[in-house]
Design a protein around this nucleic acid. Structure first.
Lengths: 143, 143
DNA sequence: ACTTGAAATGAGAACCATCCTCATTCTATG
DNA sequence: CATAGAATGAGGATGGTTCTCATTTCAAGT
């Protein structure tokens, strides 16, 4: 966790932003969640008091490359730590309640996928910078 | 195109909805686009006059299993024909302008991916119903 | 420690894509 | 042709997200 804070400090400094107590709390909430969380969940946790500040700081942290915004299957945005902080992963998205959980694939499959993506975009004029693979289905809660 | 209209007629009838001229125009716009389009693009085309009707009819067509809603990388929703009408495909999403283009992968890769997805979700309590794979990057226009 | 200027915060207002309302128009059916 | 019910379109309402601005906090120099 201290390593994480040190990394975030550096990335914020790079865009002339301070790592305040409130922003540390936000990063800790995201780190402890282990899955993408909504603004509602973040504020309901009690450690991040104001919704407007949460939105603003998530935008700052996104610009710093610390946070990534995730679209699930409902009307709420969700936020998680950037992949280079948590490791490359994908999402299982419940189409009923909107909940999002992380999952990972064997690295062989990932390498294979990366190779195919490279080949597909080669002649298209599109310059790929990353990919997202989401499973859509029903989570255990919603059976 | 006539086959398409016949199929849509059937699917709408199944949920007690009519296939009106306006809805036919909407389906034709989506079919001709060949990529997910925004409400703005649909209305700007001139064949679908009212924005509110476009939204309502897209919702009806989505319920009928004719249309799928796609989230890109900007604040606009995009709409395309359902995969069983156009074939399974994925999206290249421009992170700069938000444009979305279709692409397909070799069927061997798809089968492989499906197998891995099955294995991953097997012990998780999550029941997968589909997947979406998006390439994020920069399109030819945005260089 | 004290001061000071600039950045961060929080409460509420503003924004805008999307959805809803309702009076009017269309359409399938007898 | 008549009629009842559905579809349409213009504008209003909704709500997640963003912006505003007065207040508070922070970092750096003295």
């Amino acid at each position: 966790m201290e390593d994480l804070h040190a990394t975030v400090t550096g990335r914020l400094r790079r865009i002339d932003q301070r790592y305040t107590t409130g922003r540390r709390a936000l990063v800790e909430v995201l780190a402890e969640a282990g899955r993408p969380v909504t603004i509602g969940e973040i504020v309901a946790g009690g450690r991040v008091p104001a919704q407007s500040t949460a939105y603003r700081n998530l935008a700052v942290l996104e610009q710093a490359g610390v946070v990534r915004r995730v679209q699930g299957h409902d009307e709420f945005s969700r936020y998680e730590l950037a992949e280079d902080l948590t490791g490359h992963h994908h999402h299982m998205v419940c189409v009923t309640c909107g909940a999002v959980e992380d999952f990972t694939m064997p690295s062989g499959v990932e390498r294979n996928l990366a190779r195919v993506i490279e080949a597909v975009s080669a002649g298209s004029g599109f310059k790929p910078e990353g990919h997202r693979l989401d499973l859509l289905g029903t989570c255990a809660e919603c059976v």
